[in-house]
Design a protein around this nucleic acid. Structure first.
Lengths: 192, 192
DNA sequence: CCTACCGATCGGTAGG
DNA sequence: CCTACCGATCGGTAGG
């Protein structure tokens, strides 16, 4: 199989997720592809750029998926449920990227670090606003929308740490269960 | 201030939490203490042993705290609430250790790695058993105790990622809120 | 895609 | 507690 920039990035994604950014040597990425370390530089600029691409792309996709999830839904509980569902689903289906984002974000250089933190902040605030709106409408009973948004988002993130595609539950099953969990955390009295 | 084994470990805990195990050089640990790298070896055996001690001690304390939390409580919902409360509280008050355990456990060598994974597995299964017992008694409505135990425990773990002692909420406040979240995830219909 | 090689830095030891 | 130093490995470059 031909080595391409995408193949290098995929190998790096697997290894960074397994051993961490600093715990992975480029020689290991090269060995995973069956080439020598210097040959990697035909397909990438640096180890740092590899990390930056993986983390920034993932963070942008999370934000885009949130927008698509809430767009066109009138009911605030439906919007929150769908936002939690796609977030949990992503963490079951893109486990490697999720582990890297949450483990190695501090190893990013500027300006990418700020971009990623900004996207994450926007996402959290948007979810917090949904919870606050639900409370204002009397649909949710969260006493502190900020703590609830942290709790429910990070719970969805953690799916990446235990989910296995070989288990009894599909990614969709888990995402459904977690969207129920999320609504309960936000204080929905009678989930479904 | 005299450099002691405890001081070396504390400096390593701060730096490992900040930059990761592989991202931290022993020269940084030494600089943090105002000494040269070789002098560290008067107070420790190796970088790996430093990590092993931090992670194993923390994991053993988690298991001991769980035992103390459920011991002597008759009501299964009370036991689950208290187990979640002490777990969340620990992740607010021992943030550095929690971040290291969850980020660098894969960098551990045997036999400590197996010991830590075993302690973690016992904790999860004990929580899962509490949920199952609550369901059997009709007190909880979790449809899948395993998924619920993962969700609720990992939610508590994530406190270490956002909590700040300088914020408006105390560690105790957050632990109280999270123990409510945990019971809701487990399907308690009318949390307090 | 390779070999050959660079300076820097790593964890750790010798010896005092 | 230090200086001096070890072999190994790191990310990356030269040059083909």
């Amino acid at each position: 199989m031909a080595v391409t920039p995408a193949a290098v990035r995929d190998a790096a994604t697997t290894l960074f997720a397994e051993k961490g950014y600093h715990g992975t040597a480029l020689s290991e990425v090269a060995a995973h592809l069956g080439i020598r370390t210097p040959s990697l530089y035909n397909h990438m600029r640096s180890k740092q750029e590899l990390l930056a691409e993986i983390v920034l792309d993932t963070s942008q996709q999370v934000w885009a998926e949130f927008g698509a999830a809430v767009d066109g839904r009138a009911d605030v509980v439906d919007r929150l449920r769908e936002a939690a569902r796609v977030y949990a689903l992503r963490h079951a289906t893109h486990r490697r990227e999720a582990l890297i984002v949450n483990r190695d974000v501090a190893s990013l250089a500027e300006p990418v670090l700020s971009q990623v933190l900004d996207l994450r902040r926007r996402h959290e605030r948007a979810v917090r606003a949904l919870i606050a709106e639900g409370v204002a409408q009397g649909r949710l009973a969260a006493e502190d929308p900020r703590t609830a948004s942290f709790g429910l988002l990070e719970m969805c993130v953690s799916v990446a740490r235990w989910f296995s595609p070989d288990g009894a539950l599909s990614a969709q099953d888990v995402a459904e269960q977690y969207s129920d969990f999320a609504l309960r955390v936000a204080g929905l009295r009678d989930p479904d």
